[in-house]
């Protein structure tokens, strides 16, 4: 095991895959000599050259379209979208072309592309902070991955670059400078596998990306009160690892779903419904952003986006059965 920053783990995964497969190319804003907006491509331009590490203009529609078409014609492109918010500008090629290509060509064509997009609030305000994962989970044909650790960043990006169809790989601004253990030998994380980060018997907390970090912090605080929370890091949002979720929730009887984005038609809504179909007596609650755009002011941002304290409170509320009709939105919000 080595200790690497999350951004270094991504870089190592890209370097190894580019070495292994000459069809892998990188395209995006500021990824060449600049080394990536989050320093995650540092050294790759110098190592692999301008044909395989390509800066693009500020033009997300053509960036995603280039990746979709190049993938369909034999390359394995990784397109960088600096802020997940801007993927909106490239959604047509991703959703209407790449995600449907295998289906609409009856298996004659596929588009094995990866879009790496960065989500999460970190002071940048309404259009540089959104967590839009549910929009993507809704699309048949898309694989959606969102690691929270350096080890998974490495293992999951490698998996994405070998996947048979389009993958959206979502990372988070607050994860890049975090350190973690990364295996020294190649280790891939399969699609559709969640990870149990902490075991517990009283409730299951399900989160992904940076919220997994906060869920673990909350679980530590809850343990001091005698509440043993099991923390599951989803890692794969599409497809979902129902088996791991169901096994845990059956044991604890309570499930709290935490996401950084909006709860309306959100990750938690989908998971709660899916688990209640499997476990009809399960008590569920969800926690996400309040129903407002993300504001740049630190005071406003931290009010809107959940933190570890909010997770703790939602867990207590769920266990105290302080709920109406068996479902519950957040500890504070009654909309």
């Amino acid at each position: 095991m080595s200790r690497l920053f999350f951004r270094e783990a991504l870089c190592r995964a890209m370097a190894e895959e580019m070495e292994r497969d000459s069809r892998v190319i990188l395209m995006g804003q500021d990824i060449a000599a600049h080394g990536g907006s989050y320093a995650e491509t540092r050294g790759l331009f110098e190592r692999f050259g301008p044909a395989r590490v390509r800066n693009t203009p500020v033009a997300e529609a053509v960036t995603v379209g280039l990746a979709a078409g190049a993938a369909a014609a034999g390359l394995r492109p990784l397109a960088f979208i600096t802020y997940l918010d801007f993927l909106m500008l490239g959604l047509d090629a991703l959703v209407n072309y790449a995600a449907k290509l295998r289906f609409k060509s009856a298996g004659q064509l596929t588009s094995p592309m990866v879009v790496k997009a960065t989500a999460g609030a970190k002071g940048q305000g309404p259009t540089h902070a959104q967590s839009l994962e549910p929009w993507l989970m809704n699309v048949p044909g898309l694989t959606v991955l969102a690691p929270s650790t350096a080890g998974d960043a490495y293992g999951m990006l490698k998996t994405a670059l070998r996947a048979p169809g389009p993958v959206v790989f979502i990372d988070h601004k607050k994860l890049f400078p975090r350190g973690g253990s990364v295996p020294d030998t190649e280790e891939l994380v399969p699609v559709g596998s969640a990870a149990i980060r902490r075991e517990g018997k009283h409730l299951t907390i399900v989160a992904h990306s940076y919220m997994s970090v906060l869920a673990l912090e909350a679980a530590t605080a809850l343990a001091a009160e005698g509440i043993e929370a099991e923390v599951i890091d989803l890692r794969s949002l599409a497809p979902i690892d129902w088996e791991t979720l169901t096994t845990s929730a059956r044991r604890t009887g309570h499930a709290l779903f935490v996401e950084e984005g909006q709860v309306v038609c959100g990750v938690g809504a989908e998971l709660a419904f899916g688990l209640r179909e499997r476990l009809s007596s399960l008590r569920v609650a969800r926690l996400g952003a309040k129903r407002a755009p993300v504001a740049p002011s630190p005071v406003l941002e931290s009010f809107i986006v959940p933190d570890a304290k909010d997770i703790e409170q939602s867990a207590r509320d769920l266990l105290l059965a302080n709920v109406k009709n068996g479902t519950h939105r957040t500890g504070k919000e009654e909309t």
Binding site: V62, G65, L66, A68, G69, A70, A71, A72, A73, P77
Partner: peptide, 9 residues
Amino acid sequence: TVAAGVALA
């Protein structure tokens, strides 16, 4: 945009 990608390949 897709055609640009096909041409790139």
